[in-house]
Design a protein around this nucleic acid. Sequence first.
DNA 1: GAGAGCGTTCGACAATGCCGAACGCCGTTC
DNA 2: GAACGGCGTTCGGCATTGTCGAACGCTCTC
Lengths: 251, 251
Amino acid sequence: MPGTVQSIERAAAILRMLAGGPGRLGLAEIARSLDLAKGTVHGILRTLQHVGFVEQDRGSGHYQLGAALLHLGTSYLDINELRSRSINWADPLAARSGEAVRIGTVLEGRVLVVHHVFRPDDTFQTLDIGTLLPLHATALGKVLLAYRAERPAADLDRYTHRTVVAAKELAAELERVREAGWGADVEEYTVGEAAVAAPIRGYGGLVVGAIGVSGLVERICDSRYRPQPKLVGYVRDAARAVSRDLGAARR
Amino acid sequence: MPGTVQSIERAAAILRMLAGGPGRLGLAEIARSLDLAKGTVHGILRTLQHVGFVEQDRGSGHYQLGAALLHLGTSYLDINELRSRSINWADPLAARSGEAVRIGTVLEGRVLVVHHVFRPDDTFQTLDIGTLLPLHATALGKVLLAYRAERPAADLDRYTHRTVVAAKELAAELERVREAGWGADVEEYTVGEAAVAAPIRGYGGLVVGAIGVSGLVERICDSRYRPQPKLVGYVRDAARAVSRDLGAARR
DNA sequence: GAGAGCGTTCGACAATGCCGAACGCCGTTC
DNA sequence: GAACGGCGTTCGGCATTGTCGAACGCTCTC
């Protein structure tokens, strides 16, 4: 691929560093991690600060992400077609299933949540939009993995005692997802919670996202830890409806 | 100020263009707007696409914001202190007032909404986090203007027949806000709606944000279009509480 | 079929970004 | 209190990188 602009790539790497980890980093630490001169990093940070993508804490001198990114992030949501087509189906799915609904796509080897409808009750919930979830340990992620050339990381993180961490076992699980046309995680990402997801296809039949419901394992699954067929049906119905909307939009 | 990295500034300008307007732009249009060569813009877009900040529509060739920005945007929210300190007071204010609550700060000469609590009822509402609002035509904006060296744009946009568009009138209005310690907009931004806001101060007493409630004008105001004193009190209480939290965090 | 405008590519060139070195400041240790 | 280490910042020389004009192929319109 022809050359890219090095300083923009470096700036993006700095922003990604700031988005991961503790959120605030010193210049020297960034320079060490990226193997760049401190003067180089300083020039990039000064520019990012100038455009509002980074802010510097006056006391500690540390850097953090800036406010301008919030507007860019939500502007992305406004034009994200997967999300705009899914919104109409996500609320009814939450109402019908009684569970929280999330829609995700792949970003940087993980699931990026682009829409989230709260479970329709009064419990305390936090909005997951913008969150990155693991591919191998979530229902959304398994579905996205199953239909992509995407390879999961060689080293799979364990989140609970039920997380699949062996590559062979994951491959077998993904085969099951392809056969069934839906995926699940049962206490593989969060203890006490389970989820079911199905693929959303775009123009030409490619999988561009996934939609799923999640909740307490005893509500999502029967006594033998299998997702309730009723819920699976609801999710697949919603996935098909969104897929139709996405396909139709391209005609 | 010492030199900044030109190509990063240009990349940021392109991203801001894509965030405004229709959301999808052609390369030639971006080049014209920024007075850059098409080859230059192409190199920058290719790099932004490579890092996930931009996507290209295969059919039309047009460019749009990319998924990576969503994660950066929400990561910013996670570390935004104004927001994290405000969250505890925003829900009670919504419950107490029965209205929607928003918290905002200044970005690019406008109000950036960093937190939004829905009005506690079942009406359809859309989440405003990440949205940019005008300074001169909103309660949040007037409060932020009143306590900043920030100058509003010379040319003030009109949103309703009640929008203040004369600089002198706005200056007088901001003087009133400073005197009263809170601001309001009564059908100045949205017909049929009114809002009340109060300043949130950070360490050293500087105004770093504003918190406000908004709703139908007949619920926010009395019959003479004056905000109800009870609501004003609730908002000011919440603003003081958040300000204390922000001040306390720096000790 | 001609023309206009698009996105893309390429190579020459000079402008810019990079980095080593040095600085002042701050916190820690002795 | 002095010394030390590591921080963020600044600066200037240099060569690498980014820029841009020109050309291309494609698509759409007339």
